[in-house]
Design a protein around this nucleic acid. Structure first.
Lengths: 358, 358
DNA sequence: GTCAAGTGAGAAAAGGTTTTCTCATGCAAT
DNA sequence: ATTGCATGAGAAAACCTTTTCTCACTTGAC
């Protein structure tokens, strides 16, 4: 029974009987192997492979060819030790569900993979000690930079990143003085939504949204008032379907004319609202248009009818944050400040209207 | 205007005018600083800090104290170069939404952070070239191991990890011959679900589930038949709310007795089913019990009524995968094979019945 | 007073790479 | 025949640790 037990990194060269379980770094090929296989010194080999230094074209080619043939790959640890660049960055987040973090992460990764940069993901759940542990671990590993991200624009992560000796970029979370921060332009996004409702012919547009203490809630409400006027009330609540449901109940219980459109603070609220309308026999989008916010596919696309909503372009946000932290790591100049990225309207079926021409 | 531009890693010691944007690794304290501050050689300093070698207790204490005071932290790159351990592992996934990856990641991180291990997250979207790029980048960085995870138990990642010289563990994805694979015990989970329905008094239990080509679908259906018998049909479809909705329509359009319980293949299907039942005026859980699978909080908890469902304990799965890859990296013996982890019943309100005693 | 054993601490090598410096060769110009 | 210079390639240092080896000194025993 214990015969099948295996050990990784056995000292003696074990017979590989299909035991691909183990690994064992023994075999890793170094530049020494390349050099001796090509009959040159390691310095020449290094220069050949990096296209630096002076040497005969034939030598350079031969070294490169041989390196390729024997499958040489430079050890990033050794390289990083010397160059002070680990080609590694850290992504710190307190967003457990990954609603915001995942798209941001995808963008970062997308932007940096071509530069050979890998990303440490550290999920800290609003736990300062855990956060510090993760930050320390990353600093020890000589990350080239850190991107901090969260689930809310107006809150800080529970750890101080302001005096690190590596660059820090904030994405979708509150940054510090003199830092670079990327965020969505919620005002513009809200305007996009309300203008679309106007464009499809709605006039009595109500706004059902999240808790008023969210900065983005106030920004969106501000833009809503600007475009829609003050004819309909703003209903503040929580970020849940059931609040969307309840809010519709409230609105339809009031005397007087009912809204003909609902601008909802996120897709979950919108979904709750759509459900409540259906239960009242009100047709979406024929009788009432409903628009969401976030473009959380899993909610927006599965609602019946699928939700027209505002996408915060978090992937693009991540991409830019990634390129920025890379620029800082390479010592390129970057202007500090808050960068607002525009949102995008995603037209599905909950408002009526046709998608804008491509 | 350009005065505010900043450069990271400026050669000359720049005045820090609150420019916490830049970083600049200049200041990093090495063991040389510790040694000279303590008036000992670097070898003595190293031995003092690592509690190895022989030396006077007083010297050891002094070195440790001074290291703490000046904030010394060993460079993991240099350490890794020598020890062949980078205290870094890679998590490879093709699950874009993170539905399965995030809990697994949380478990891995949770288990390994205390060991000083950080995790590279690599999202490859079924793109073999991208996957290879990521794997190469991780190998170059000398990861101690790789965990492969996916969105489906019976599919491989689009990259061959079978002959790497680092250990590989599979979690929630199909592994290779002679590898270690962790997966949920879907059969046991399904049994848990159906037995619960029986326990709350249901007898005509239908099963609405995903595509039959999913291995886990067949496993769950098998367990369902075992417990519930063959009185009611199994409806195979897709993993969406609308399928859940449609399936209920189908079931209730048939002549004869209707089911008094629905065992759904995932929470989204369950949610669609609940919605369809409500539209028909059928009360959940009074008239019909509905149970889901996955315990995807965002769906299960927001459904009205909140869904009773089966949790696959993915975090625990991640934890075990993390500990296993660590064990392999350290050369400890691990038995290859597939490990099935038990699921857990999460009782909410969609079935009636009381949660089991704590 | 000599020897063996034990103690505290430092010197040096190793790990894999990049980079700077040095050296030898060959060739053209004087 | 000597000088000057361009060229190709290697030696060695550096990055930061850990670990092994060596050395000097003290102590106790004969």
């Amino acid at each position: 029974m214990t015969e099948r037990l295996v050990k990784a990194f056995l000292k003696p060269l074990q017979k590989e009987e299909g035991l691909n379980i183990s690994g064992g770094k023994r075999g890793r090929i170094t530049i020494h192997e390349v050099a001796s296989a090509a009959g040159v010194s390691i310095s020449t080999a290094s220069k050949a492979l990096n296209d630096t230094g002076r040497m005969g074209a034939e030598t350079r080619e031969r070294v490169k060819r041989i390196a390729g043939e024997i499958g040489y790959r430079p050890n990033a640890l050794a390289r990083g030790l010397l160059s002070k660049r680990s080609f590694t960055i850290g992504l710190l987040t307190n967003d457990t569900y990954g609603r915001f973090t995942l798209p941001v992460m995808a963008g970062i990764s997308d932007a940096l993979v071509d530069h050979g940069v890998s990303v440490f993901l550290c999920a800290i759940e609003d736990d300062p000690a855990l956060a510090q542990t993760h930050v320390d671990a990353m600093l020890d590993k000589q990350v080239d930079g850190i991107i901090a991200t969260g689930k809310r624009l107006d809150r800080r992560l529970p750890v101080d990143l302001s005096n690190l000796h590596v660059p820090v970029v904030y994405a979708f979370t509150e940054g510090t003085q003199n830092s670079v921060t990327f965020r969505s332009d919620d005002e513009q996004g809200a305007r996009l939504a309300v203008e679309w409702l106007v464009k499809v012919g709605r006039r009595r547009i109500a706004h059902i949204t999240g808790p008023e203490d969210f900065f983005s809630v106030r920004e969106r409400a501000g833009a809503y008032h600007e475009v829609a006027g003050h004819r309909e009330p703003v209903l503040y609540g929580v970020w849940s379907e059931s609040w969307g449901h309840d809010a519709v109940e409230q609105l339809w219980k009031r005397p007087g004319e009912k809204p003909d459109a609902l601008f909802c603070g996120n897709d979950q609220i919108a979904r709750g609202a759509v459900d409540a309308l259906r239960e009242r026999g009100i047709k979406v989008p024929q009788d009432v248009s409903v628009i969401g916010f976030d473009n959380w596919e899993i909610v927006a696309a599965q609602t019946r009818p699928p939700l027209t909503t505002v996408d915060m372009e978090l992937k693009e946000l991540g991409r830019q944050a990634g390129l920025t932290v890379l620029a800082l790591a390479e010592g390129r100049p970057v202007e500090p400040g808050v960068r607002k990225l525009p949102c995008r309207l995603v037209v599905r079926r909950s408002c009526g209207g046709k998608p804008p021409e491509e």
